[in-house]
Design a binder for these strands. Structure first.
Lengths: 215, 215
DNA sequence: AATAAGCAAGCAATCGCTTGTTGGATTATC
DNA sequence: GATAATCCAACAAGCGATTGCTTGCTTATT
């Protein structure tokens, strides 16, 4: 093959292990962990039914690896997108858009696997929790910054949780071929948070049209 | 034969079908549809493993019945709570609180089963969709009313979807013994929507007070 | 030669569900 | 009012399929 990274020590990197990981993640997201059989995964990468167990000790291990890999990739994308953006309001907009991308438009929507956490045992769940905590800390920092600057009334935890709810729930209804693009959803969410949903009297900039066609 | 069920206290008319339904819903919410076996359900109500199939044709049928029952009960609670509340802003507050109750505090959190929709076939899913559409229509009507009164900048669909995200995501983090009560969460969500998260300069006139009493 | 990567076959457990049956309650018949 | 017929709700047992995973062997590359 092309990649010549073989004679390494412990971690058998690259090769078809990655393909296995990505395919498993995709199937887990599409059909759910329990509804996806190890045979499905093997078949999807062109292996026999028992071969995935050469690379992963168990089906749970496959899920755990996929979740951690996905969460860390999302974390890196988030960091890359918002470093250098000085204005916290603008940074928050970038983070919202990036987060939606992490959830819904990356080649495989790995972070959405958090739904499947309950299929893991306690220790694996703790590892996942550590990764998500790191992710959320970045958000809380920016929200705190906005509050310190007096641009948010409060940055207490309900705000962050409600914000994540707005965004993460998109996985339940967003469709790539639907009426709303990720850019539009991101803008709507950021506007709701940073400018509010209420119509403000003349002074503020809120001239937009009243309503569109209801669904 | 030894363990004759003597459920004398139970009313003769109250079939054990209902008990089956409630128990199944609880287990489905707790462990997920796939991870819950029909044997689990049978055992939880004190039956033998095959007996539930006297009342329900299939496991899927049990899920469908539980979902529809839960959705309609929630719909009734929503209607009961918000009829007679004239002011649309106050009505929205009541709806938000009632919705959180439907999700998180009723004896069994049946509406949270929407997560499990994908375990149903197409026709069953269509029935569920019809029930949820009816539920959402009530919300859209109130949002439209607020927009018409000029109190919302827009009532286009993203707003409703983001709002449901805020609330429904609570199922992922809310704990009854946690720091935030449902009342507090409901207030935070309603404030975010109706008053915005931003700190406004004192000059802005619009809705100043935090909680408003119906006029 | 040595090792990484995968195949072929199947095991043990579990799954949803079916079949045949039973005791008790209800209803119909005499 | 006693007896027979019917029905309800559940049990007992197990079938066929599927599941995650294991074992023993083969290939390909270095």
């Amino acid at each position: 093959m092309t990649a010549g990274r073989k004679r390494q020590g412990a971690p058998p990197e690259a090769n078809r292990r990655d393909e296995l990981l990505r395919t498993a993640a995709r199937l887990f997201v599409e059909k759910g962990f329990d509804a996806t059989t190890t045979r499905d995964i093997a078949e999807a990468v062109g292996m026999r039914s028992g071969s995935p167990f050469y690379h992963f000790r168990s089906k749970q291990d496959l899920l755990k690896a996929a979740m951690i890999e996905g969460l860390e990739a999302g974390y890196r994308r988030l960091q890359a997108a918002c470093t250098g953006v000085g204005d916290p309001a603008q940074r928050l907009r970038v983070m919202i858009r990036t987060h939606l991308g992490n959830l819904l438009e990356s080649d495989c929507h790995t972070p959405m696997l958090i739904y499947e956490s309950r299929s893991l045992d306690a220790t694996a769940r703790a590892e996942i929790a550590a990764a998500t905590d790191r992710y959320q800390a970045v958000w809380q920092a920016t929200l705190d910054e906005l509050a310190t600057l007096g641009r948010l009334r409060s940055s207490a935890s309900p705000l962050r949780l409600l914000l994540f709810g707005m965004l993460n729930w998109g996985g339940q209804w967003y469709r790539p071929d639907g009426r709303l693009s990720l850019d539009e959803i991101a803008e709507a969410a950021a506007d709701l948070l940073l400018e509010g949903a209420i119509a403000r009297p003349a002074g503020a900039a809120a001239p937009a049209g009243k309503r569109e066609t209801p669904p």
